[in-house]
Every structure is written in C-alpha cells, then in structure tokens.
Design a binder for these strands. Structure first.
Lengths: 132, 132
DNA sequence: CATTACCTTTACGTTAACGTAAAGGTAATG
DNA sequence: CATTACCTTTACGTTAACGTAAAGGTAATG
C-alpha cells in the first residue's frame, strides 16, 4: 500500500499544502497520522482528485463532499442506500444539464469563430494582414 | 425592439436587482438610461443569460466577461480578430476538458449507483425493506 | 395629495476558499 | 551538533460575489 506525504500530493496536483489541510478542516479528507505528521493513502489521494475535478466543474467544497460520499457505499441501512441512490440520480441529472450548457456554448463559440473568420477575409487585403 | 426593466430581468432569471447592478459595476452589462432608470435591451438580456450560464459552469465573472466579448465581433483590426479567434479556440479547448470531466464523473456515478443497487439486493430480505 | 410600487446610490457586512506569517517540532545530513 | 528540509498549529488577511440597510427620487393610483 503506497502512502503519500502532504507535499507529495501538493506537488502532484500543483496545489499548496495549506489547501490540502484546509480540505481536511472542512471534512473532505481524513488522513492518518504518524505522530503529528499526516500520512495519505491512495484512497485519500483519490478523494483529493475528486475534489479538484469538482472544482474544475464549478462545485463548492460542500458539493464535492457529497460527491465523495456518493463514491463510498459505507451505508448499510437500506433506507440510507435508497437515499444515496436518489442523490446520485439528482447529481447525474445536474451533470446532464451542465453537459448541455457546455455543448451549446461550444456551438455558439464555433459560430463566433466563423464570424471572426468571415470578418477577417473581408479585411484580408488591409495593411494589417498578420501571417505569423 | 423590446426592452426590460431591471425587475423584469430579475424576475425572469430569479436573481436580485442587486446582482444585476453588480454585474454592471463589474462591466458585464451596460444598459441605457431613461433619466436615472436603467433600460435593458434584448442584447443586454442575452449577455445576462451568458453570465448565468457561465456561473452554472463555474466561470468567474471575469471569465464571463471574456465570453461576452467573444460573442461580439466589435473588432475591426485584423490583428485583434486573430487574437480573438485564438482566445475562442482556447475557451473551446477548455470546455472540451470540462466536457470530458463531466462524462467521466457521470460514468463513475453510474458505477456507484450500481454498487448501491447491488448492496440493496443483498439486504433485500432485511427488516428495512423500504418499498414506498 | 397621500399611498404604493417601483427605481436610484452609497456603504458596510458576509461567506467560501484559501494565502500568509509567526512560532515551533523532527529527522537526516555534513 | 548546526544546518537544512520538511512538518505542525494558530491566527489574521484577502478576494469574489453578492446581501442588506439606509436614504431618497418618481409615477400612477384612489
């Protein structure tokens, strides 16, 4: 079982150690200790990756915490399991909306780019014909 | 040409008027005035929609400002046009990454859901067999 | 003309997500 | 054993994106 120091993870994901400790403060990570020093398992590392992916998608840390809880089926009670399935479905629906937003935005930007190219070709024989 | 009051837009998009004025402060909107009162055109409304879509995707207001500028080819200089095309491409690449992140997250959540269902079926004959 | 429903500006307050600095502990290295 | 390279906690600071409150203007309505 591989383990990581806090600076190992900080370097790998290009964040500060402060950030990693902050996530622990907020209850998103819970590394074990060797004396005072934090020791991270590959499970901790996975959770950190989930947090950072969440950030790239505009999730708050609270939302990323929920995501993390969705990955780990520590639930035993079947009622809890049903609740979890429900929240997973909700999150998937939300992601679908985001996916849709992105696709539309990409199409819009593509049109925008084409308008730019059109404007460029009209000005093609102007003095500022940058070809570098 | 239809026009909107600030509360028209606030109601339509379920935000406060303070938020709309804040976006103006930050240079994302520039409505005309009828005396002191702000009048919004459908172009302003479109820009507001862009901002809110950006928010749903985790964009900062600075990033949404860039997006807005990408939609409007007020550039005439061909050098400026080339720069704009470049930034549009960059943004599209970034969106592609986000799209990828979302797809993976959705697959992960799907697996998670299946694990939950598996755990459920194992506990199916336990006392807490919620069927409501 | 008083009330109501909007609109305005100014300004201080709040929360999330860290940054930064201070003060100190430990383990290896020359 | 002094230096270096990490680690720790505590605590105050910072920025983005608004919220909230105060104080006042305008236009229609009964």
């Amino acid at each position: 079982m591989t383990s990581y120091s806090i600076s190992d993870l900080a370097k790998e994901f290009d964040i500060t150690t402060r950030t990693i400790r902050f996530y622990e403060d907020k209850g998103l990570l819970s590394p074990s200790r060797k004396g005072q020093v934090r020791i991270y398992t590959s499970a901790d590392r996975t959770n950190l990756k989930l947090i950072l992916r969440g950030k790239r998608l505009g999730f708050s840390l609270d939302q990323s915490r929920e995501i993390i809880n969705m990955y780990d089926p520590s639930q035993n009670n079947s009622e809890q399991l049903n609740t979890l399935i429900h929240s997973i479905r909700d999150k998937r629906d939300q992601l679908e909306c985001q996916l849709h937003d992105i696709e539309i935005m990409m199409l819009d930007l593509q049109e925008s780019e084409e308008r730019c190219r059109a404007a460029l070709s009209k000005t093609a024989n102007s003095p500022a014909e940058s070809t570098n």
